[in-house]
Design a protein around this nucleic acid. Sequence first.
DNA 1: GAGGTGACGACCC
DNA 2: TGGGTCGCCACCT
Length: 118
Amino acid sequence: MQKHNIEKSAQSDFFEQVYQVVRLIPKGRVTSYGAIARYLGAARSSRMVGWAMNTAHTQQEYVPAHRVVNRNGLLSGKHFFTGRPMQELLEEEGIAVKDDTICDFKKHFWDPGEELSL
DNA sequence: GAGGTGACGACCC
DNA sequence: TGGGTCGCCACCT
Protein backbone atom coordinates (compact mmCIF):
# COMPACT_ATOMS: atom_id res chain seq x y z
CA MET A 1 0.00 0.00 0.00
CA GLN A 2 2.69 2.42 0.91
CA LYS A 3 4.69 1.39 -2.11
CA HIS A 4 1.75 2.13 -4.32
CA ASN A 5 1.40 5.55 -2.80
CA ILE A 6 5.09 6.30 -3.29
CA GLU A 7 4.93 5.32 -6.93
CA LYS A 8 2.04 7.63 -7.52
CA SER A 9 3.72 10.65 -5.99
CA ALA A 10 7.32 10.05 -7.05
CA GLN A 11 6.43 9.28 -10.64
CA SER A 12 4.36 12.34 -11.29
CA ASP A 13 3.84 13.24 -14.90
CA PHE A 14 6.12 16.21 -14.53
CA PHE A 15 9.03 14.11 -13.36
CA GLU A 16 8.37 11.51 -16.04
CA GLN A 17 8.43 14.20 -18.69
CA VAL A 18 11.69 15.53 -17.33
CA TYR A 19 13.30 12.12 -17.57
CA GLN A 20 12.05 11.64 -21.11
CA VAL A 21 13.39 14.99 -22.26
CA VAL A 22 16.76 14.41 -20.63
CA ARG A 23 17.06 11.04 -22.33
CA LEU A 24 16.35 12.74 -25.64
CA ILE A 25 19.34 15.01 -25.29
CA PRO A 26 21.74 14.07 -28.10
CA LYS A 27 25.31 13.14 -27.35
CA GLY A 28 27.55 16.16 -27.22
CA ARG A 29 24.70 18.49 -26.33
CA VAL A 30 23.53 20.00 -23.07
CA THR A 31 20.48 21.81 -21.82
CA SER A 32 19.40 23.76 -18.80
CA TYR A 33 16.84 23.18 -16.10
CA GLY A 34 14.89 26.20 -17.20
CA ALA A 35 14.70 25.00 -20.79
CA ILE A 36 13.19 21.71 -19.71
CA ALA A 37 10.83 23.38 -17.29
CA ARG A 38 9.71 25.82 -19.94
CA TYR A 39 9.23 23.02 -22.44
CA LEU A 40 6.97 21.29 -19.95
CA GLY A 41 5.06 24.50 -19.39
CA ALA A 42 6.46 25.17 -15.93
CA ALA A 43 9.08 27.83 -16.48
CA ARG A 44 8.84 28.85 -12.86
CA SER A 45 9.30 25.34 -11.58
CA SER A 46 12.90 24.98 -12.62
CA ARG A 47 13.68 23.85 -9.12
CA MET A 48 11.54 20.82 -9.64
CA VAL A 49 13.65 19.88 -12.64
CA GLY A 50 16.70 19.90 -10.43
CA TRP A 51 14.90 17.81 -7.88
CA ALA A 52 13.79 15.45 -10.63
CA MET A 53 17.45 14.98 -11.51
CA ASN A 54 18.08 14.10 -7.92
CA THR A 55 15.48 11.36 -8.08
CA ALA A 56 16.47 10.49 -11.63
CA HIS A 57 19.46 8.64 -10.26
CA THR A 58 16.99 6.31 -8.55
CA GLN A 59 15.15 5.54 -11.77
CA GLN A 60 15.63 2.23 -13.51
CA GLU A 61 16.18 3.88 -16.88
CA TYR A 62 19.48 5.68 -17.20
CA VAL A 63 19.15 9.45 -17.25
CA PRO A 64 22.12 11.45 -18.59
CA ALA A 65 21.86 14.04 -15.87
CA HIS A 66 25.38 15.22 -16.69
CA ARG A 67 23.92 16.82 -19.82
CA VAL A 68 21.73 19.06 -17.69
CA VAL A 69 23.31 22.13 -16.17
CA ASN A 70 22.12 25.43 -14.85
CA ARG A 71 21.46 28.56 -16.90
CA ASN A 72 25.08 29.66 -16.62
CA GLY A 73 26.39 26.36 -17.93
CA LEU A 74 27.76 25.62 -14.51
CA LEU A 75 27.97 22.00 -13.42
CA SER A 76 25.91 22.70 -10.36
CA GLY A 77 25.07 19.04 -9.86
CA LYS A 78 28.56 17.64 -10.16
CA HIS A 79 28.83 17.41 -6.42
CA PHE A 80 25.87 15.07 -6.45
CA PHE A 81 27.46 12.81 -9.02
CA THR A 82 28.93 9.56 -7.82
CA GLY A 83 31.78 7.74 -9.50
CA ARG A 84 32.88 9.48 -12.67
CA PRO A 85 32.95 13.28 -12.50
CA MET A 86 30.44 15.16 -14.58
CA GLN A 87 33.22 17.01 -16.35
CA GLU A 88 34.81 13.81 -17.53
CA LEU A 89 31.56 12.50 -18.96
CA LEU A 90 30.99 15.75 -20.82
CA GLU A 91 34.52 15.87 -22.15
CA GLU A 92 34.11 12.37 -23.49
CA GLU A 93 31.17 13.62 -25.50
CA GLY A 94 33.25 16.40 -26.96
CA ILE A 95 32.16 19.14 -24.58
CA ALA A 96 34.96 21.26 -23.17
CA VAL A 97 34.59 22.06 -19.49
CA LYS A 98 36.62 24.66 -17.68
CA ASP A 99 36.29 25.59 -14.04
CA ASP A 100 33.13 23.47 -13.67
CA THR A 101 31.59 25.47 -16.49
CA ILE A 102 30.83 24.38 -20.05
CA CYS A 103 32.84 26.27 -22.64
CA ASP A 104 30.72 27.76 -25.42
CA PHE A 105 27.63 26.76 -23.55
CA LYS A 106 25.46 28.46 -26.14
CA LYS A 107 27.07 26.42 -28.88
CA HIS A 108 26.36 23.13 -27.15
CA PHE A 109 23.00 24.25 -25.83
CA TRP A 110 20.12 21.99 -26.84
CA ASP A 111 16.67 23.49 -26.56
CA PRO A 112 13.91 20.86 -26.38
CA GLY A 113 11.37 23.46 -27.42
CA GLU A 114 13.16 23.88 -30.74
CA GLU A 115 14.71 20.50 -31.38
CA LEU A 116 11.53 18.67 -30.54
CA SER A 117 9.56 21.01 -32.76
CA LEU A 118 7.18 22.06 -30.05
C1' DG B 1 0.92 18.63 10.94
C1' DA B 2 4.06 22.40 9.98
C1' DG B 3 8.28 24.50 8.69
C1' DG B 4 12.60 24.53 6.27
C1' DT B 5 15.43 23.14 2.35
C1' DG B 6 16.91 22.68 -2.52
C1' DA B 7 21.16 20.01 -8.98
C1' DC B 8 17.08 27.18 -10.55
C1' DG B 9 15.02 30.84 -12.90
C1' DA B 10 12.50 35.06 -13.58
C1' DC B 11 11.19 39.37 -11.99
C1' DC B 12 11.98 43.84 -9.52
C1' DC B 13 14.69 47.69 -7.93
C1' DT C 1 24.05 46.09 -15.65
C1' DG C 2 24.00 43.97 -11.20
C1' DG C 3 22.26 42.58 -6.67
C1' DG C 4 18.39 41.10 -4.07
C1' DT C 5 13.85 38.77 -3.57
C1' DC C 6 10.04 35.70 -4.73
C1' DG C 7 8.04 31.61 -6.69
C1' DC C 8 7.51 26.87 -7.42
C1' DC C 9 6.50 22.08 -5.49
C1' DA C 10 8.37 17.72 -3.58
C1' DC C 11 11.11 15.81 0.12
C1' DC C 12 13.19 15.72 4.85
C1' DT C 13 13.27 16.76 9.76
